[in-house]
Design a protein around this nucleic acid. Structure first.
Length: 493
RNA sequence: GGCCCCUUGGUCGAGAGGUUAAGACACCGCCCUUUCAAGGCGGUAGCGCGGGUUCGAUUCCCGCAGGGGUCACCA
């Protein structure tokens, strides 16, 4: 493969700005980007906004933001410009024109004046006959006179591509191999809509050809569109790019990923506190695998290793559990200061921190964050994880059976009382003194192990789980720890 | 329904005629541990079915089944 790529690789990601960037789109973009970077080629970002109804600038902005967040950049395209612009199809209308004329003149395309009703009627008829609906070419041989009559009657025509009969169409796909289609299965399809805008199948070909795209890497849902595009490449005498159709990403029930499978947009994952490096790593492994047994890869490594040969043909289920594992891995690698920054917005939003009280608390907060870093899977868990440190009042966690049991031990009230009493008097308070304090209590009351440490843990946090007890106590400070313990003591007596 | 793609454990997946069928997530167990995790070690679990081809098929071919995609004036 390496040897076959003689000309400079040029790939593109061409989203339709009709919503946020989805997981599947992100992976397509990533594969294109990895391929381009691997081969020292160019990545192009084109916006396919020929659907006036559904396209929006807001969606475009979200998509660009998502790509940037993932660390995917582009050499040509929207926002950065380039020699082959403009990069929004709405701004390229004049470019399509001559090609449409060419097809019209050579008789490879024709105007169709059928109304939606007529088309619907034809469709129904075919269905009743047990045939599949497809355009039968009613307007293929309209005379100029007839066309004028329809035109003056207010009909706005579309332009259809005249599909030649009995033609084998072969897609030589880099991931699927040779795939064959028959032109007889394809009805004359629309290339220019009645609003004058090109359809996807037409614009994509003209743009890919004019932009010098060498490899079209996209989702498998486009495979069955490819024969139509092949027809246009041929009609316009454009050189063919190489195609690579990557399998879809499925939800847990093995159907195509959709909103009911939970979060599907990249921005939602960002919001939940997933790290871009984890997302990229995860997406890369969904449908592609490197040689060897590693699972953790930096973008640079992915670029070095990536190849289309190792792209899987079968669809992949989106496994949130694995994403969580990867994300937890990357969170563990973060410097506590950085993680703290990331946690801040969530803590503020949860009301666990007051913005004004932040300044002198930062280094303390950083230690608290460090104490829970290893159990965090995604950053939006920060409020839950850090509540033990930040809560005003401690409630006994309902449903925490272990905590309940500890509180019922007959030794517990004594332990808590002793702790409250002694902690209040401490002048020094660090890991070592806290350790000694607990030891003393244990010795004096003849209590040890769980009955001692768990009792204190539950007393100061209301929970049977949480960060390392010593760290928890040290960060809480003697006053707060004693106050909480006192509070719990009153609750249970 | 036509056409097209896909089929290795719960999931991602390695494998490309002869293997004890990698590895990872999840799960279970043990170790570590002043909790829960993390970490270390170990374990359970898989080639959809039926025909071929072959000395031998997870691997090649054909059917079937199942899943998915596509058949728009959406991309």
């Amino acid at each position: 493969m390496e040897g076959e790529v003689m000309e400079k690789v040029r790939v593109r990601y061409a989203p339709s700005p009709t919503g946020p960037l989805h997981i599947g789109g992100a992976r397509s973009a990533l594969f294109n980007w990895l391929f381009a970077r691997h081969h020292g080629g160019a990545m192009i970002l084109r916006i396919e906004d020929t659907d006036l109804e559904r396209s929006s600038r807001e969606s475009e902005t979200m998509i660009l933001e998502s790509l940037r967040w993932l660390g995917i950049d582009w050499d040509e395209g929207v926002d950065v410009g380039g020699e082959n612009g403009p990069y929004r199809q709405q701004q390229r209308l004049h470019i399509y024109e001559p090609y449409v004329r060419e097809l019209l003149n050579s008789g490879q395309a024709y105007e169709c004046f059928c109304t939606a009703e007529e088309l619907e009627e034809e469709r129904q008829e075919l269905m009743q006959q047990g045939k599949m609906p497809r355009y039968l070419g009613k307007c293929r041989s309209l005379t100029g006179e007839e066309k004028e009559r329809l035109r003056s009657a207010g009909r706005k025509p579309v332009i259809r591509f005249l599909v030649p009969a009995g033609k084998k169409l072969i897609v030589d796909d880099l991931v699927r191999g040779r795939v064959e289609f028959d032109s007889d299965d394809i009805g004359d399809f629309i290339i220019i809509k009645s609003d004058g805008l090109p359809t996807y199948n037409f614009a994509v070909v003209v743009d890919d050809a004019l932009m010098g795209i060498t490899h079209v890497i996209r989702g498998e849902e486009h495979l069955s569109n490819t024969p139509r595009q092949l027809l246009i490449y041929e009609a316009l005498n454009f050189p063919l790019p190489q195609f690579a159709h990557v399998s879809l990403i499925l939800g847990e029930d093995r159907s195509k990923m959709s909103k009911r499978h939970g979060a599907t947009s990249v921005l939602e994952y960002r919001k939940q506190g997933y790290l871009p490096e984890a997302m990229v790593n995860f997406l890369a492994l969904l449908g592609w695998s490197p040689e060897g047994e590693r699972e953790i890869f930096s973008p640079e490594e992915l670029i070095r290793l990536f190849s289309l040969e190792r792209v899987s043909k079968s669809p992949a289920v989106f496994d949130l559990g694995k994403l969580n594992w990867l994300n937890a891995h990357y969170i563990k690698q973060l410097p506590p200061a950085r993680l703290t920054e990331l946690c801040l917005p969530y803590l503020l939003e949860a009301g666990l921190l007051k913005p004004e009280a932040l300044g002198d608390k930062m280094s303390w907060l950083e230690q608290a964050v460090a104490a829970v870093q290893e159990k965090m899977e995604y950053v939006s868990q920060a409020p839950d994880l850090l509540a033990v440190f930040l809560e005003e009042k401690t409630e006994i966690e309902s449903g925490d059976k272990t905590a309940q049991k500890i509180l019922e031990l007959e030794t517990t009230p004594g332990v808590i009382a002793a702790f409250t009493e002694k902690a209040g008097k401490m002048t020094e308070w660090d890991s070592e003194t806290v350790r000694r304090l607990l030891g003393e209590i244990g010795k004096e009351l003849g209590v040890k192990g769980k009955a001692l440490f768990m009792a204190v843990r539950v007393a100061v946090s209301g929970r049977s789980y949480g960060p390392d007890l010593n760290t928890l106590l040290v960060l809480l400070g003697p006053a707060a720890a004693a106050r909480r313990a006192q509070d719990i003591l009153e609750k249970i007596s």
